[in-house]
Every structure is written in C-alpha cells, then in structure tokens.
Amino acid sequence: MIIDEKIKEQLKNEFLQLKEPVNLVLKSDNSQNSLKIEKLLEEIASLSEKITFLKEDFDTKYSPCIAINWPEKETGIRFAGIPVGGEFKTFIDSIIMVSRNEYDISERILEFLEEIDKPVDIKIFITNSCGWCPPAVKKAYSFALANDFIKATAIDCYLFQEEALKYNVSAVPKIVINDKVEFVGAREDNEFLGYIISAIER
C-alpha cells in the first residue's frame, strides 16, 4: 500500500467532483521508480470508476513519465517523476482539472491563448519540497489543457539530474519554453503568456 487509508477516503470524496473519464498513462522503464509509480497510480485509479490506469509508450523523452489524458485524446499534460510530497496534491488537482476540463486561466488571457497555432513545449523543473512549484505546474498544465499545441511536462530535478544540469537549474520552479525562453518562479497569466509568445517568435 502506497496511500494511507485516511488519505484514500479523502481522495474518494475529492473524486466525486470528476465529470469525464481520465486515463493515467505510465511510460515505464521498469526501474524501481517506475514500479513505485505504477503501484501509486493503480491505487489512485482504484478510488474512482472514472479513472483508468494504463501502461503505454507515448511521445516523450522522459521515463518514467505519467500522462493525464482523456480516453480519446491526449491533453499534453505530463509528469516526469514520482508525484509525492508537495506534488501529490498538484497531481490529484490535475486529474480533477482534466476530468472537468477546467483551468486556472482568466477569460481575457484565454482568448489570446486560443490564437496560438504553433508547437509550444513547456518544461517545469521542480522538487517535491518546493512551495512555489505547485502553482507553476498548475498554471503550465492549464495552458496545455486550453490549447492543443501546448505540451507541459513537470520534471523532478532529483530523478532527472542530468536534465536539470543540462538546463542549469539552480532554483525551482524553473520554466523553459521551446528551449528558447526561461524564467524562475510562478507567474501570472499575462506574464506567462508573454513568455510563450516570445518563445514562439524567436
């Protein structure tokens, strides 16, 4: 058992908010970490009939990596690592967000966001003990959910140390967009959108 029984009961109540089915898809590398994630996702999926756990390969260079998808369509929302610590709640919130197709973006910014028609790759480098990481992840996931051209991957710096070194991560959350624009910290909608547009135009 990965999840405490008391937490399971809380999650069952939270999952009453779910509207549409959600698939938790694991790209596994058969490591110990992958096995831990597999058990965790199986337990989460057992708490609601609207959640299905699958092991499949999908388009990402990270493994282990989780995608939170609709049954018939990818959302572009990915989590590379084990969603524990401060990121566990964010992960649960993201499942609910996908199921309800609701996101943390203002209507005004949403109008601009809908006009983006070029690929956008957002990497959010995180640690499980970072207080500013959850809002940054949630914001990036919201952008991915709102626009099919946008993919957002939260990357655990401890599990993917080489990747964190490659992108010179010295503080988290560090956000890298299309490998062209980067910044540190959580940002408001308009500022985040500005970074996305800047990355597309470069």
Results as ranks from 00 to 15, higher is better:
Met1Lys: 10
Asp4Lys: 10
Glu5His: 03
Lys8Gly: 06
Glu20Thr: 12
Asn23Ile: 07
Leu24Glu: 03
Ser28Lys: 07
Ser28Gly: 11
Ser31Glu: 05
Gln32His: 04
Gln32Ile: 02
Gln32Leu: 06
Leu35Met: 08
Ala45Phe: 09
Glu49Ile: 05
Phe53Cys: 11
Leu54Arg: 10
Asp57Ile: 12
Phe58Thr: 11
Thr60Leu: 00
Lys61His: 04
Asn69Tyr: 04
Trp70Lys: 15
Glu74Phe: 00
Ile77Lys: 02
Arg78Val: 09
Arg78Thr: 11
Val84Glu: 08
Gly85Gln: 13
Phe91Asp: 02
Asp93Tyr: 05
Ser94Glu: 08
Val98Gln: 04
Glu107Ile: 02
Phe112Val: 08
Glu115Met: 07
Ile116Arg: 00
Pro119Arg: 07
Val120Gly: 10
Lys123Glu: 14
Lys123Met: 13
Ile126Phe: 01
Thr127Ser: 14
Ser129Thr: 14
Ser129Asp: 09
Pro135Val: 06
Ala146His: 08
Ile150Ser: 04
Lys151Ala: 11
Ala152Lys: 03
Asp156Lys: 11
Tyr158His: 15
Tyr158Asn: 15
Leu159Phe: 15
Glu163Ala: 03
Lys174Cys: 11
Ile177Ala: 02
Asp179Val: 10
Ala186Arg: 02
Arg187Lys: 15
Gly194Ala: 09
Tyr195Asp: 07
Ile196Thr: 07
Ser198Arg: 09
